[in-house]
Design a protein around this nucleic acid. Sequence first.
RNA 1: GCGGCCGUAGCUCAGUGGGAGAGCACUACGUUGACAUCGUAGGGGUCACAAGUUCAAUCCUUGUCGGCCGCACCA
Length: 884
Amino acid sequence: MSDELSKTYEPKEVESKWYKTWEDGKYFAPKKGKTGKSYCIIMPPPNVTGILHAGHALDITTQDALIRFKRMKGYESLFLPGMDHAGISTQAKVEAKLWDEQKKTKDDLSREDFLKMTWDWKDEFGGNIANQQKVMGASCDWDYSMFTLDPEANEAVRKAFVSLYNEGLIYQSDYIINWDPKLQSAISDAEVIHEEKNGAFYHLHYKVKDSDIKLEIATTRPETLLGDTAVAVNPNDDRFKHLIGKKAIVPICNREVPIVGDEYVDIEKGTGCLKVTPGHDFNDFDIGKRHNLEIINILNKDGTLNSFGLEFEGMTCKEARKKTVAKLKELDLFVDEKNHVHQVGHGERSGVVIEPMVSKQWFVNTDAMAKSSVDAVEQNQMTFYPKGWENTYFSYQRNPRNWCISRQLIWGHRIPVFTCQSCNHQWADEEVDPSACPKCSKGDLIQDPDVLDTWFSSGLWPMTTLGWPNKERMAERGFERFYPTSVLVTGFDIIFFWVARMMMMGEKLTGKVPFEKTYIHAIVRDKLGRKMSKSLGNGIDPIEMCETYGADAFRFTLAAGSGYNRNINLDVERIGGYRNFINKIWNAYRFIKPHLDLAKSELPTDLDAQEKWIISELNQTAKVMNESIEDFRFDDSCSALYSFIYDSFCSWFIELSKGTLSGEDLELRTRRATVLKFCFKDIVKLLHPFSPFITEELWQDLKEPSEDLLITQEYPEFQNSMIHELEQENMNKFIEIVSGARNLRQSVNIKPKEKVDLHLFTDEEQLAKFLEENQLGIKELANAENINVSKKSSDRPQKAIMKATTHTEVFVPLEGVIDLNEQVKRLETDLKKTTKDFEKYDKKLSNEKFLANAKPEVIDDVKTNHSDLKEKIESLQERIKAFS
RNA sequence: GCGGCCGUAGCUCAGUGGGAGAGCACUACGUUGACAUCGUAGGGGUCACAAGUUCAAUCCUUGUCGGCCGCACCA
């Protein structure tokens, strides 16, 4: 740092300089600290080919603040980064590229060629996001970084799979699943998003065989009738129960299907008759199972109708629906059509309508795991912050559904299940490429073609990244020390996807929860509260923000907006505001810098009142910081720091120090410079977790030669020896008096440069003494020539303006003409307001029940306020009388 | 349908059973050597509405209105 500081802080070079210094110096590597304890955060791995968005920026900010805080507190701290292969989205990007460049689909390539192309893509674009995280200041130990498709991660996935498979918890089954016709893959329930769509109820007629009866059936999806294998009625429904056991005739395909009785059918709903399509409806699938119905799949993988679609074969469901309705009209089996708004499932990634379809897939039975994951939270082995989010977690985990984990994709972890062509034996293997069947020892094996749901590997991530299941790797990476990890920081949208799965897998495979706390942070939205999206163009690019305002300001903005809230509506102007704050700190330092040569390294014991006050305020701030960061109340941390630095330190303490520092008294100057330096050292320490760069930069100038970088310094703690209650009380009065004097000046348009005399009247002896001792300060801050402190029994100036503060009357005598009417009016306004307050207390004190029931400290407070306000009222009344 | 959250200053939000808060925005004045990315001072709120519990309710309870979210239901 040069001797001449620029007038405004320039973050750019400072930031890259310090990041490099920290990284090159291995400052992010975990080191044993004074507590002997460890602290670990596993970063939610972003998509390998993704770019940093505002949500990531918040992730990084909160996690890095916690890590830096704990590191300074003396914990062996590890911020462990990684990247996710993001099966669906990465494959989709590569498929798009393949089509753009070669007009080919993945099916035109061999599996191996497609995989190679994807790896090439990953090598080309992967890792950008890590560089962006570095710009944000993330103090991750990059040596730990892992990719979900690394061999180590694969090993963990195979180990977990085999273990669950052998326990019978992973099984293959023909079951109804959500089919995404665009991805041409199964997806899990959680990946289906329901959206309201306008549709219609179509009322149709199904004939009953060997009778004239026509059953009226309502449906939103008439085209699925081609897959109907029953008609269901409620067995208690008098209208229809006699038909149970007879056959109905499905229109168009003229299939004869049984009429079954099933309690699921609601007599009140619709027409009371239900067409049953076990192949394409979740509830119908269950009915089908109960009645042993045939399952007919009428769809191709791309969502068009197959040969069961008869004349509609090859059409999409939407087209087929229209044609079916037309055909039914032709056949005179169409009754009616009513508009209807209903929820339709869409693929989270693909956006297309999801088709329920029966298909052979791999599932995890999560019943037992889900239950124990609920117990763990109920027993506080893992705690949600804010606590309310546990309800969301419980609502998922108390109603577990079997988890479909197979995906018909290429990019991902291949399912490690092999089938022997010779003896048909099927088994799961931890080996990548087993050579022979364990049963018949023949070598003609085929592996299941599917890959696993990305969330399967994500669920193992806290274990995988710490070396599990390999003993050597676990020792090397510190599994024993870091697992369970300390806290998981993430958004509420993946409580089910990720938090729940990690909980289940962690407990199942290691017997321990994977993290002790989960902090659910807000979703970053635009300033109008809208979700950031490409189509709205309202996204905020973190890198652009760092370039415009500096990473420190951007981080501080995000942290200041983070507490237990659900949304952060991020206004770019806000970042500008905090950039100004960062600049303020820079300039505050620019002011004290020339005096630092005088400063001693130890805080002296003979502090004056102002110094005791600022030390006390600093101490109070340290207390709030320690408590609020621990509770994830970063909003409280930031506001405590902001007001301490801006108001207490800059507006009052620095202003009060100017006289001393430019004065003659070397002893006073030395002591004041020492206190300023002491405070500033603590300020940069306190701020470091949120704004690491400027603080490290300033630390270079402040530190003793023997001291290391700020990132390794001890975080300030609250200390009893630094409490100075009396000085805090007096300074509050002092501030009230100075502000009152300034207010008086402005009320009669006294120019800021013009000096006035100040007469203060108080009967509080120790306050009077304090005011006498701090006359110089009052003079400078209120621009007064002379100060006079007297008892209230003394005469008041005749021609003056006056303001009543707690225990003290502030008078500014004036030359020339005073508009007394105006002064009386001003005082009367004050009197009215004060009287109103006073009456509230007066009423309480005259209420016997209050005196009998209220807590003693409350009564004391009320009494104090009562007498303070009474004193103020008397002052005001007296002055009004004198002026009138 | 079930469940949850929220309604406090123009905006974004803290907050507590006992004196209504912050930041931003706004108004007036101001270039005294840290800072105009600044300073000083100021205006602004029936704490959605109603009832109840309490000595005391913005805070607890119930209801109403308004906004949001999750899950379920797709006859």
